[in-house]
Design a protein around this nucleic acid. Structure first.
Lengths: 348, 348
DNA sequence: GCTGGCACTCGGGAGCAGTGAGTGCCAGAC
DNA sequence: GTCTGGCACTCACTGCTCCCGAGTGCCAGC
């Protein structure tokens, strides 16, 4: 029906207007600012229906309407138009990310960039260890019973662990057990995906010379353990100052729970959940299970393995902001940045 | 004089009361809550003098008095009593920090601990590279013209850089230039303080075999450059949620500038400035040059080289909070944590 | 099915009096 | 000289009422 269609236009107009002005929007303002071709009275009727259906709500009688979470959801899924990035924004992305020194630097810059582009809080997950391949393993002796093991992956991530080891007693005279261990480990693991490392450990334990068994066992245990903790993936957060834009308006309670949740990295990691590089995930208000996020939306996407058939991400990145956010713009920015970061990591 | 002395007691009482209640404190409340042995009227006279001298101020007539920055300064320098940590707090420190896996983990735990103990924002600086000694240098070939150099220091810090290198053309057949380079670098640098590394570079360039000169030059340049950037020292921040304690009361404007400053790590690093392990530095309100910090105080101290004669810190740690903070308690916590972290790093 | 008109609702700002915490000052006691 | 009780004064804050206006829902007419 024709008026069914117009109702969606009204909803879209309400969302757009509310996002840009932060004022509940009334029928008159809507008629004046958007070319809907009908009078305020008609719009009022449409709004009554939209409210009935739960897409919008009134903060109080005699105020305009505000989109509900359900309204935003509908907007994002059905009626928002993709907003291409401006040339200036594209340039900003390149300028910002080129010339990064190392992985840490890439991630730090990305977070700053994304926070700046979207004027919200940005988060980025370190590349998952499990899906990276080993480039090199370095072993350094710290003390007679302690080794430092440094793992370097093909995404440039460097992970270090101190390992307690049994003191080697039965080594052939003149041998350098640590050097042997290094050679052994590298021969076994270099090139392997870390997810498969568990399998190789068993082999290695069988084939290693007897006097190295103890060392190999200790180091392997630590490696496997490191990889087995997916929650241990680190997270970088930036742009928290943006939470205070719009005073106390955006976040009804305080922003305390949100700040706390952002420091509890685990919470955010779970929210980003299973991100894939192929499509942007939007989680709105109450849809976020965690209490701190009920007034916020999360827009996230995976990065890495760009265009690959296996749609697995190295990690996720995203933006956290008020439910009242510019979804099309944020989604475009998040997608573009993720793509660029993916390229950057693939190159190195 | 006797009443000069009492005036200081009044000032102390005002600071203590204001810190704990967050209400401007009046003469009557003071007389009731603190055993000053005089009547409210007398206290009023003292307060008039203290105000005259700039130690306290009235938000408005008919309100109590509030300490000024100068008042806090005097309190910290002259009349505060050291507040020993409770047994529970000591236990918390040990429980929290023991069992840390590596340097990153130690620092992350420290920040969380300090934020929790002081109920404010905690910051910690990564151990300065310049004052650490090299434990090991690892070189990994990424591509024919790119190396990854990983530097491991005796404080457990791991730093990585990608180095662009000239392609080696004149190597003897069958040689492995990267392995040679690794041997060479480790022979030259291991055990050296990084601050002295610059000197060694020159030697190395002279003595290195001709076909490695290009490599050595490129890698050395990067190393020296890395060390020359003191501002590049990284910083960990935690407990920002504590800024919202006490609603908008503590930070008069918004807390936006403060959050921004905390993300601009450089700003904080400069505020911590030249911290020494020997004594706790307190910077109050307007004393902080940066605008975002004019409503805040910073309590910082150096950690590392505990008890050494050369009183140089590996890095600084500290707490950022409202000027209205519990200075004695915060100072005690900061000092205790720094000492413990210093020990922990010395052990490893 | 759309529109103009109209009565109704209600949040928020302005104006205003009352309250009480806190002050400054002064005269008298120790 | 120092402290104290008393007293008048100031002024933020609270609660109250009133009023305005934005926005609504409904209805009759086109």
């Amino acid at each position: 029906m024709a008026h069914e269609d117009r109702r969606l236009q009204v909803l879209r107009a309400i969302v757009q207007d509310y996002v840009s002005t932060n004022d509940p929007v009334g029928s008159k303002a809507l008629a004046a600012r958007y070319d809907l071709g009908v009078s305020p009275a008609t719009i009022r009727n449409d709004m009554a229906v939209l409210e009935e259906e739960g897409y919008i709500t009134q903060p109080h009688t005699s105020a305009g309407r505000v989109p509900t979470d359900k309204g935003y959801r509908f907007f994002v899924d059905r009626i928002s138009q993709v907003k291409p990035l401006s040339a200036a924004e594209r340039r900003a992305i390149e300028r910002f990310l080129d010339g990064a020194l190392d992985l840490d630097d890439v991630l730090a810059r990305t977070v700053r960039l994304l926070a700046q582009l979207t004027r919200n809080v940005a988060v980025i997950q370190y590349p998952t260890l499990a899906r990276s391949a080993v480039r090199h393993l370095e072993v350094v002796q710290l003390a007679s019973n302690r080794l430092l093991v440094v793992l370097i992956t093909d995404t440039g991530r460097v992970e270090q662990r101190v390992v307690e080891i049994p003191v080697v007693t039965d080594a052939p005279a003149g041998a350098d057990p640590v050097a042997e261990l290094r050679t052994l480990l590298n021969a076994a693991f270099v090139g392997a995906k870390l997810a498969e490392a568990g399998l190789k450990v068993a082999d290695l334990l069988d084939t290693a010379p007897a006097h190295l068994r103890g060392l190999v066992a200790a180091v392997s245990a630590t490696l496997v353990e490191t990889l087995a903790e997916p929650g241990e993936d680190r997270l970088l957060v930036g742009g928290t100052a943006n939470l205070t834009r719009g005073g106390a308006l955006d976040f009804p309670g305080t922003l305390r729970p949100l700040l706390e949740a952002l420091e509890e990295q685990v919470v955010v990691l779970r929210l980003m959940g299973e991100v894939a590089p192929s499509h942007v995930l939007v989680s709105i208000g109450e849809e976020n299970a965690h209490e701190g996020f009920t007034g916020a939306s999360v827009v996230s996407v995976g990065y890495g393995s760009a265009g690959g058939t296996a749609d697995l991400a190295l990690g996720g990145l995203g933006v956290v902001g008020p439910t009242r956010m510019d979804y099309p713009g944020t989604m475009a920015a998040v997608r573009a940045v993720a793509r660029y970061v993916g390229q950057l990591l693939a190159e190195s």
